[in-house]
Write a protein that binds this DNA or RNA. Sequence first.
DNA 1: GGCTGTTACGCTTCGCGTAATCATG
DNA 2: CATGATTACGCGAAGCGTAACAGCC
Lengths: 308, 308
Amino acid sequence: MKLRQLQCFCAVVDAGFNISRASAVLHATQPAVGKQLRQLEEELGADLLLRQGGRLLGLTDAGERTLPWARQALQSADNIRVAAQEGTGDTRGTIELATTHTHANYVLLPAILAFTKRFPQVHIGLQQGTPEQVAELVRDGKVALGVVHPPAQLPREIVAVPFFLSRLVLVMPLNHPLLKEKALTLEKLASYPLIVQNPARPQGARILRQFQQAGLQVNLAVQALDADVMKTYVAAGLGIAVIPAFTYSAKNDRGLRVRDVDHLFGPTPSAVLLKRQSYLKHFVYAFLEQLDPTLARGRVEALIFESE
Amino acid sequence: MKLRQLQCFCAVVDAGFNISRASAVLHATQPAVGKQLRQLEEELGADLLLRQGGRLLGLTDAGERTLPWARQALQSADNIRVAAQEGTGDTRGTIELATTHTHANYVLLPAILAFTKRFPQVHIGLQQGTPEQVAELVRDGKVALGVVHPPAQLPREIVAVPFFLSRLVLVMPLNHPLLKEKALTLEKLASYPLIVQNPARPQGARILRQFQQAGLQVNLAVQALDADVMKTYVAAGLGIAVIPAFTYSAKNDRGLRVRDVDHLFGPTPSAVLLKRQSYLKHFVYAFLEQLDPTLARGRVEALIFESE
DNA sequence: GGCTGTTACGCTTCGCGTAATCATG
DNA sequence: CATGATTACGCGAAGCGTAACAGCC
């Protein structure tokens, strides 16, 4: 048995039982991948993939049983690579992390500042994307951690560790009529043009769901991608928006006013996404503690290595 | 990275940092193993083994960090082989287990009878040895489980799941003076020639420790290896012996009498030895439940996969 | 006929063993 | 000089890619 064979097996499964697509991911050719598969099956003496008319349809029972262990073996190999790299007391190295614009700009900034002060030699590689893209980067081991509003569904390989609940606020231009309303309701909000985050993202989806559940038609002005753009559009008079409180600062957002709407939407969690069973460099643990004291090493390890 | 490289790495560590011995275990030659090691180190970009003057002395920090993951990768590969073999609803196959003479003869017998009745097609491969040898067989994956009086120390890779506490009894020939004594004490026992299990084994060690702690000199007649031999020797008049209650039966051991000495030595546990993180066939779980109802699948799995 | 997986062939690399070499106590 | 690791070399197997072939929408 070779790691390469297991890699091909997992890749084919992840590619939706399509050898062609898997071979592209593996930077190899179709025949090479196909051969590895058959060699693995031959050595094990059992078919792993259901074939019908020269197509792959799914996993056999044996495939179902072996797949988790194939993944575990590959994960262990990844961990070996990471563990071999880092020096125990090393003060330099790299942390690869992925996050959304909003978290990069507000939540991560203080943590990164404090961290680089403590470890000036550690380079932080930042990647941005939607929470789903971030989750994928974590799952594929391209980054060690992700920081996002966790999406409703996550692959099983990933743990989301919530560390911070933010209130939501309604942001408006100066002198907006809603500033004078006594109590804000979903109905009142719905009567104005609304700027909402793209509903493909957890934040936008959450907000819109509340309106839908109340049976309200929303007057969508624009679908923006992050809180900063939403604020810019609000300031430009395109509409009002609901954003996490941490993205508004009275000092920097002088052209805007906010009102608390936590009673309408509830708080929104920020979470760290980590891959189960993955070895994290000691910096990463240091960074997590910097990000939030509740993300202590012991607790995080327990969550990563628990058996779901 | 190749599984073979990891295998060589682990083998060299297990062989006490000796490539020659490791290569024998791996059925390969010195140069082959050495080359795999250096290739692994080269690919990882870090030394794993401390070399001094052409000798291996121990693990580097990087080696220390990677070793557990190398083992995990190999374990996963083993699990794949096992998982691929067994058919889900299969009623035939093999269980390899290791145990001591005493457990084979008394504890396992009813479980094996019941099990083979339920799964007539499953072949049970039985190996015997000392508890330490059994533990080694489990650790090396030669057998799926072991059943023994657990030794004081076990390798970290192994979990011992106790399932049965047996009282200890003193076994004597008919008409032995101790049968008329009111209360048995260690002192009284020590005044007669004693037949004890070899102290290298947990049972023998336990008994002798009690005498030592009481500051008593023991009159050792013979060191036997299992309860049956001890009974034979007692019947022959060589001395008296302390054995687990389950090894005595009034029906079959007519030439012998017993008295309870649980108050002197305490009960002795029987345990199942299993390798952490190892995939067990569904028969094995069935067998464990047959052996003792407390060894239910859920509980056993939780113990095998807990992170120590 | 486009998509997908398999077979056939040749090249290159890799893994192994034998034998010789080197270092250490 | 005995033990144990490394280097050198040659053979056979394995892995890969290109190209041609075979089943299914």
